[in-house]
Design a protein around this nucleic acid. Structure first.
Length: 730
DNA sequence: GAGCACTGC
């Protein structure tokens, strides 16, 4: 099936490889392995005899030497020896993530039982890289090489190279603030600037300092110095280097195929329509040739859009055109992909298109970093993304379509050049590109950070306002989070962590949820609250195809409870348990199996933490009033009152909001509601609605709600305002 | 009558 020109290219590459192989195969075998591979490593360990070792296949040893990072090995190690922090800039395909930890291991950084940690923003990456490295080192996964991600821990006392998600390392810091078992910590994909990576920047810098001082005052003590390695794909080297006391910056060249970039000549008003035209142009233009040329025909098309709606619209438009293709023109197979799409439908994008057919993949940002699809040679980039932004002044998230950054545009185009050279069609002008921001706004600057602050306080960082962030979150956001934590009694009036706060921080939940959970013991409904919170931790439990809206109404009625979305979700979980998680039952009820599995995992984990906190597992049976009251303990600031125009006003600050159409209570309009989250899209929408009785407020929350909170009575607002003002001035 | 991008603990 391979065409001539493609095979030439392939051949070129393999010739290249052969050269390198030849060069190295001249080195006598023993010398090659004493160069730091396999046999030496196995001998040099003083691990237990139970440790399993395998012969590393020679092709793996050869592959390792062909990676671009291999030529930089000595230079890297020299820099690591001479500096306590090093920044590495490298594109994809250098092998840095798999190789550098091994080099460090070979250079003795794990002596004395120390461990090297490598963080990843995503679970799958941590797991798959650890698997690969264990193969390369010929060891059993979970022994010398391991990984730790939520719900899955393959590491042990023996583990010397540990791959973990950035969030997991933050958790470890909550238990051991000095991270004393690690000699080296590598932050991979640092350019992505996830919330947790940013927290780690600050934490590690402070830990490095503290450990340095400890070593100085007691060179033979138990503490050793900490080495920090930051790995990034883009050129924000300056920012990182400066932050880590002018750490040296090393560049490793990657192996990407060239991608030709095209811009539109004019600004596109309707980018979905522009995408439609571009896809058809790509397809028809590369379809005219008679020869079955991989270069001409082959290569699937990847289109970046902002959400499900756009994807389904474009899918429809394409399908209309495809049926009208003249005979002789290849068919197009349209594959939508976005996170909420059920797993089995997602898998379609990974299948090879049938003969005489080309795939066009319509994706959200999920295809930018989270998953890699083979066979892409054409990328269509609309230049926009849907992004969540926290507005600290009003304390609400908004979800809106915004222009991408240059870094993001580069990442998208790179998706066309993974296996061959490719083409990227940017549906905006070059001038617009030039005016894009260099990189996207870091998550820490556009998120609610109440949870981060709770974590920092637990680690022992009390003065959050002067914490050395790589980039500071807005001061308003910090203040708002401190206020919230104070309202939830996680902090006392001096800003110190309370006992409740300590307990809250142990749960992998936002503070309002962890407070509710802790309080549920008093309300004798821990079991139900655990289930509900697990359900609320997962999005898109239902996946409803557009044409099934009518059927869905009937299905929803099966679970519906007038006592609120929370109780309805509890009913779903109970029914799911009754049928033993039957996939057919899920399918018949439009329930996403993957979501339910995740909910079960979360539920089990929360139960485990509750046991550790010695919380009594109590159930309220069908006395749901207890649950509704209990949620007030965490969400008393999220209460709203019905207005004559069917809209709602929040009691805390008189914001006008509406019930989101996804709520089971949409159109029911109870007088008083409690909601879990508020997001502005076209309007301010409240999601997950629980009807409550007004007299419960002073009963459950006397501190904030006076004796009779009515719409006219401003006392609740007043008291919330006064208390937070008093806290602010402290 | 209107809509949830993505990830992590």
């Amino acid at each position: 099936m391979l065409s001539t020109s493609a095979s030439v290219k392939l051949k070129k590459k393999s010739q290249n490889n052969e050269n390198i192989v030849n060069k190295h195969s001249k080195i006598p075998k023993q010398k090659s392995s004493s160069n730091g591979n396999t046999s030496k490593q196995v001998k040099s360990t003083n691990g237990s005899s139970a440790e399993k070792k395998y012969q590393v296949p020679p092709e793996i040893i050869e592959q390792k030497k062909m990676l671009p990072v291999y030529t930089a090995r000595e230079a890297l190690l020299k820099n690591f020896r001479e500096n306590s922090s090093v920044i590495i800039i490298s594109e994809t395909g250098t092998g840095k993530t798999t190789q550098i930890p091994q080099y460090l291991y070979e250079d003795g950084y794990t002596q004395g039982g120390m461990t090297i940690a490598v963080t990843q923003p995503r679970r799958v990456a941590a797991v798959s890289i650890a698997k690969r490295v264990s193969q390369e080192m010929g060891v059993e996964l979970g022994e010398k090489v391991g990984y730790t991600v939520r719900f899955d821990d393959k590491s042990s006392q023996l583990t010397r190279l540990k791959y973990l998600t950035d969030g997991m390392l933050v958790r470890e810091a909550m238990i051991d603030p000095m991270l004393s078992k690690y000699s080296v910590i590598m932050l991979d994909e640092a350019h992505e600037r996830t919330l947790n990576t940013d927290v780690l920047f600050g934490l590690l810098k402070s830990v490095q300092n503290k450990r340095k001082n400890l070593v100085k005052s007691n060179p033979n003590g138990k503490h050793k110095e900490l080495k920090i390695i930051v790995m990034s794909a883009t050129l924000d080297a300056e920012l990182f280097s400066k932050y880590f006391n002018n750490a040296p910056v090393l560049y490793i060249e990657g192996r990407q195929f060239p991608v030709q970039i095209f811009y539109t000549e004019e600004v596109q008003k309707d980018y979905v329509d522009a995408a439609l035209v571009t896809v058809l142009q790509i397809h028809l233009n590369t379809n005219k040739e008679d020869r079955s040329d991989e270069e001409q025909h082959g290569g699937d098309i990847l289109v970046f859009l902002t959400g499900r709606d756009e994807i389904e619209n474009l899918e429809k438009l394409l399908l209309e055109r495809i049926v009208r293709f003249p005979s002789g023109v290849k068919k197009l197979l349209v594959c939508p992909i976005f996170s909420a799409l059920p797993q089995e439908q997602q898998m379609k994008v990974f299948e090879k298109a049938p003969a005489g057919c080309r795939k066009v993949i319509l994706a959200t940002n999920i295809a930018e970093t989270s998953l890699t699809i083979n066979g892409i040679r054409h990328v269509v980039d609309t230049g926009v993304v849907k992004s969540k932004i926290y507005h600290s002044t009003i304390g609400i998230d908004s979800l809106s379509v915004i222009p991408i950054s240059k870094a993001s545009a580069k990442q998208r185009s790179g998706r066309a050049g993974r296996e061959y050279d490719g083409k990227c069609y940017r549906l905006y002008t070059e001038d617009i590109f030039n005016r894009l921001e260099e990189s996207s706004i870091a998550e820490i600057k556009r998120s609610n950070i109440a949870n981060v602050i709770l974590q920092l306080k637990t680690i022992g960082i009390d003065d959050v306002l002067s914490f050395d962030f790589l980039e500071r979150p807005p001061i308003q956001t910090v203040k708002k989070s401190l206020e919230l934590l104070y309202c939830l009694e996680a902090l006392d009036d001096k800003g110190k962590l309370t006992e409740v706060g300590k307990k809250m921080s142990m749960f992998p939940l936002d503070p309002m949820y962890s407070k509710t959970l802790i309080k549920s013991v008093e309300f004798e409904c821990l079991e139900e609250v655990l289930i509900i919170i697990s359900m609320l931790s997962v999005e898109s439990i239902f996946f409803i195809p557009k044409d099934k809206a009518k059927e869905v109404e009937n299905i929803k009625n099966i679970f519906f409870s007038p006592e609120g979305d929370h109780i309805t979700l509890l009913n779903v979980f109970r029914e799911y348990q009754k049928v033993n998680g039957s996939p057919q039952w899920c399918y018949d009820h439009f329930i996403n199996i993957k979501s339910m599995v995740k909910i079960l995992n979360i539920f089990e984990q929360l139960v485990k933490y509750c046991m550790q906190s010695k919380m009594e597992m109590v159930s309220c049976q069908s006395d749901y009033e207890r649950i509704r009251k209990c949620f007030i303990t965490g969400f008393f600031l999220n209460v709203a009152v019905l207005q004559p125009d069917k809209k709602y006003k929040t009691m805390a600050d008189n914001k006008e909001i509406q019930i989101h159409p996804s709520s089971f209570l949409f159109n029911v309009n109870p007088q008083y509601i409690l909601f879990n989250e508020l997001t502005i899209t076209s309007k301010a929408f409240a999601r997950n609605i629980l009807p409550i009785e007004p007299m419960w407020l002073p009963e459950v929350c006397p501190k904030y709600y006076g004796r009779s909170p009515t719409v006219q009575d401003k006392s609740a607002q007043q008291s919330i305002k006064e208390t937070t003002e008093a806290f602010k001035s402290n």
